[in-house]
């Protein structure tokens, strides 16, 4: 089980090493709209709304805390 997991991680890592771009090919990836979190205020707002209204929270980043009781 342990060896299998290690093998999986190694295969995944070696697969990752063949993916990607050269440093001079990052023109598109550097755009604002290609960042994983494009709008920090909107993301924090959504996280707090859904934290207060649903039984799940987080996943993307750490939450800001609060009661969320209402």
């Amino acid at each position: 089980m342990k060896n299998g997991l290690l093998l999986l991680v190694l295969v995944a890592m070696s697969a990752c090493s063949s993916m990607g771009v050269e440093p001079w090919e990052r023109d598109i990836l550097a755009k604002d709209e290609m960042q994983l979190t494009t709008d920090a205020a909107e993301a924090a707002t959504d996280d707090h709304i859904y934290f207060s209204k649903e039984a799940s929270s987080g996943g993307r980043a750490f939450g800001g805390g609060g009661c969320g009781c209402n």
Binding site: M19, G20, R26, I28, L36, G58, G59, F62
Partner: peptide
Amino acid sequence: DVILGVTQVVSRKLVLQAN
């Protein structure tokens, strides 16, 4: 809270994240 993540650039146009 503990979070472990991997972000992978796949191509010039695709980036993936898993946490």
